[in-house]
Computed example of a mutant assay.
Amino acid sequence: MTQNNNIEFRKAETPDKDVIWEIIQQSIERRRIDGSQQWQNGYPNEQTVKSDIEKNFGYVLTVDGKIAVYVALIFNDEPAYSSIDGAWLTDGEFVVIHRVAISEEFAGQGLVKKLFDYIEDFVKMENVLSVKVDTNFDNIAMLKILEAKGYTYCGEVFLAGGIRKAFEKVLI
């Protein structure tokens, strides 16, 4: 990827659904090949993507107009986060990052780290205190990104039928 690529962060729209679903399927397969248990039980699925878009949770990072990364951002709402084995850094408003998936075509180019920059800027503009995120203990790629982006390990949450490592980054 060259420096003159046009990168844009925007809300996902209904016509994006099929491309997003394809990217999520690639990520499900990548998790499987990497030996991760995450996303191996029928979640997320096509209905998840449709619901994300309908509820305005879905966002995409595009490179020259082509969807490269998908993410769901949910403001102040993750029931599983109300009970944590550990402690969150804050108890104010937050955004939850769910379902980060990158297209195989754009993998390994640092775009997920760039996505986190866009998310953090967006969250700050909304005057929201922090970002919370969880991932599987065996999702090494995401764990490395969270460490690189300065997220603090807060404990464990029970989500989607399993125990997840939970992280938070205070932005304001």
Rank of each mutant, 00 (worst) to 15 (best):
5 N>P: 14
7 I>T: 03
9 F>N: 03
13 E>G: 01
17 K>I: 10
18 D>T: 00
22 E>C: 01
22 E>S: 08
26 Q>M: 10
30 R>H: 13
30 R>M: 12
35 G>V: 06
35 G>I: 11
35 G>L: 12
36 S>R: 06
38 Q>Y: 05
41 N>L: 11
43 Y>S: 02
44 P>N: 03
45 N>F: 05
45 N>M: 06
45 N>Q: 12
50 K>L: 13
50 K>M: 11
55 K>Y: 14
56 N>R: 06
59 Y>C: 08
64 D>Y: 08
68 A>H: 12
68 A>Y: 08
71 V>C: 14
78 E>G: 09
90 T>E: 02
90 T>A: 12
92 G>I: 04
95 V>Q: 08
100 V>A: 10
100 V>I: 15
104 E>G: 00
105 E>Y: 01
106 F>W: 10
106 F>M: 06
110 G>S: 07
111 L>I: 08
112 V>P: 02
113 K>I: 02
113 K>A: 05
114 K>G: 04
116 F>H: 12
117 D>N: 06
117 D>I: 07
118 Y>L: 11
119 I>S: 04
125 M>P: 00
125 M>T: 05
125 M>I: 13
134 D>G: 01
135 T>F: 13
139 N>W: 07
143 L>D: 10
152 T>S: 02
156 E>A: 04
160 A>N: 04
161 G>W: 13
163 I>G: 05
165 K>R: 12
172 I>Y: 15
172 I>F: 15
